[in-house]
Amino acid sequence: MDTSIWQPILYLIGIMAFAGLNAAYLGWCERKGAGHVQRRIGPKEVGPYGLLQPLADGIKLMTKQLLVPQGVDGILFRVAPILAMIPAITSMVAIPFSPNIQARSIDLSVLLIFALASIGMMAVLIGGWASNNKYAMISATRAVSQNIAYEIPMLIMVITVVMMTGSMNLEDIAAKQQGGFWNWNIFPVAGESVAQALIMPVAFLIFFICSIAETNRAPFDMAEAESELIAGHMTEYGSMGFGLFMMGEYLNIVVGACLTTILFLGGWDCPLGLLPGVWWFLLKIYILIFTFIWIRWTYPRTQIYKLLNLSWKVLIPFSLGILLLTAIFIKVEGFLI
C-alpha cells in the first residue's frame, strides 16, 4: 500500500472527525458546564446525560430553511459561515498532538495558524457587513477593532516563545519543553535563566487573555453581545449558517487551547515526565477549554472601549517589555545568574 496516498486521506478523516466531534460536543460541554455553574442539571432529556443533544440540535439546524433575507449581499452572506469554519479546521493540519500524530510538520506552522485565525475574523466582518443589519454592522466593526487590538500582544508573546526556542515549527517548540513541568515555557526553571522564568508566567497570562479575546468569548464577546447587539454578526443567520458560525467558534477555542498548550504548557509532555503522549495533550486542552467555559459563566461582559484600553494601554506595553527582556536575557547569557 502506498502510504503517500493514504496518509493524507487518513489524516483528513482524523482531523475532520476530531473537529466535528469537538464542534458538536463542546456545545454540550458548555451547556453542561453552565448548568453546573448555575446549580442546575443542563441537558438531560436526549439520550443518557443528554449526550445525543448535539445530534438533535444538528438535525434541527440542518432541516431548517436556509433563509437569505432581502437586501443582503447574497454571495458574501453565504460565504461568511463557511469562512468561519474552514480556517479553524485547516489550522488543525499544523498542530502536533504528539510526536507521531501530526498531519504535516510545517516549518512556519506558527505563522500559518495565525494567518488562518485572521481569516476566521474576516468571516465575522463579512457576515456582519453582508447581513445589511445595523446590529450586525456594529458587531463587525467591533470584531475588527478587537481583532487588531488583541493580535498584536498575542503575536508578540508568540515571538517571545519563538525566540526562546529558535524555531517557528510548533513541533520543535513542543519538543523543546519535554521532560517535566520545569521545562515548560510557562515557568521554565530548568531550561532558561531564572529571570526568564520569572517573566514567563506573565507572558502566559497575556497570551491566555488574548486567546479569550481572539475567540470572542465572554467577558470579551463584544461581537455577539446578546444583550446589546442581539446576536451580533449572526443576527440574520438561521439554520446551518448559524450552526457553522457556532461550530467555527468552538473550533477556534480548540485551536486556541492547542496553541496555548504547545507554546506554554509543554504540548504532549506529562507534568512529571512520565508516559508522554497524546492523552496529556488532550487533558491539557480540555482543562483550558473548561477554564474558558468557567470564565464565561462567571463574569459579566466588559465594555468595548475598556476592552480596547486593556489591550492598547496594558497588554501591548507589557508584552513589548517582555519581548525586550527576553531578547536581553538571550543575548547576554548568564544575565542575572
Binding site: A34, V37, Q38, R39, R40, A218, P219, D221, A225, E226, S227, W297, T298, Y299, P300, R301
Partner: peptide, 13 residues
C-alpha cells in the same frame, strides 16, 4: 440587570 451586563449565572441564583 446582570444579564443585561452579560452575566448569565446570577439570574439563576
Amino acid at each position: 440587570f446582570v444579564l443585561d451586563l452579560g452575566g448569565f449565572t446570577p439570574l439563576l441564583y
